[in-house]
Design a protein around this nucleic acid. Structure first.
Lengths: 176, 176
DNA sequence: CAGTAATTTCTGTATTTACAGAAATTTTAA
DNA sequence: TTAAAATTTCTGTAAATACAGAAATTACTG
């Protein structure tokens, strides 16, 4: 597959962006490629389009499947696996948020809870104790809120965001 | 400084957490240390408490200052710089969000805009064009919303989050 | 304006991560 | 049930990153 310059720019940038957020560059690039073209693509074609090793593509595709970001598609008369991702950018966004929350956020909440219930947390560490509590409270708030937001339909979520800071004015009339 | 086991656990976990999100481990650990103890600490003491090289601490402290997460404090009768961070976990959270948005999010929006205005974006790439548009729209929405949320007082932001999905019911009565 | 404390920058090494290519395995179709 | 295709796993290398220790610089004190 020949990529036009714009597609290239998008894919390369996405790869760099991924790196800054702890996602492997090739993984990001492959996902960008699948998202951008929309067509299910076999591994070989990804390999030559991005110019990386076949094994690298294989591992990255597995990683993307573990993240629930891509799925296998079969094409009639072609025995190769083809890979595709959702064309709904909101769905993709929500998937990434959900996965990262489960893998990285929730376990941290667990650690903080362990910290607070630990017998080692003596009375002499009042500041330490308080700050761990505060941190836990923040993360629990974010987690709960995140779960609720993830349940909303993309369209509803959009409306919520559009409402933005105007929500402030609604707050005064909402007790609780 | 001798760290009790709980503080150690917190700091070590924070370091690992940072790594997964693209933040250097030592940088995360130093910030966790400063946050947890609450006292301004000189570089030397950070060095021996965490068991890393002095130069590493120096560079990490500079990095944390670039992120507006720590500041220098002077102690009477001591010529060394002492370093401290906010004890308000919400303020810290907001700082991180603001910085990452500016450094990584906003530039991506710029790239996407470049993509869309590029002459290379021929008419034959209808899907590519549409998907870049969708991506840009999502990121602009998030960016605008983020700016608004960052303007709110921590206490207000808390209320907004507590409201959570109940905001849905308020939406129907809010036209726009 | 020495002399020392404090800090930063530089340089090389170690560790980690990413990745290519080979080998092995699995799958598919005749 | 065998040959080819497709895919994965393994192994070693390359690249990137993190980091220690030395050297250089800056800031402070008498």
């Amino acid at each position: 597959m020949k990529l036009n310059p714009v597609a290239q720019q998008f894919i390369l940038h996405w790869g760099e962006m991924g790196s800054k957020w702890g996602v492997n560059r090739t993984v990001s690039q492959i996902h960008a490629l699948l998202y951008l073209t929309g067509d299910p693509i076999p591994a070989d074609e990804i390999t030559e389009t991005l110019g990386v090793a076949r094994s690298n593509v294989s591992n990255s595709l597995k990683e993307l499947q573990n993240w629930n970001l891509i799925h296998v598609v079969h094409i009639m008369g072609d025995r190769r696996d083809h890979f595709a991702t959702s064309g709904d950018v909101w769905e993709l966004f929500r998937t990434v948020v959900r996965e990262r929350k489960e893998r990285e956020f929730d376990p941290t909440i667990g650690v903080l809870q362990d910290c607070l219930t630990s017998k080692d947390l003596k009375k002499e560490d009042a500041v330490v104790q308080q700050r761990i509590k505060d941190t836990l409270a923040l993360m629990v708030s974010l987690s709960t809120w995140g779960d609720q937001m993830l349940k909303l339909e993309p369209a509803t979520l959009m409306k919520v965001m559009k409402l933005g800071a105007k929500i402030q004015s609604l707050l005064s009339s909402n007790k609780g």
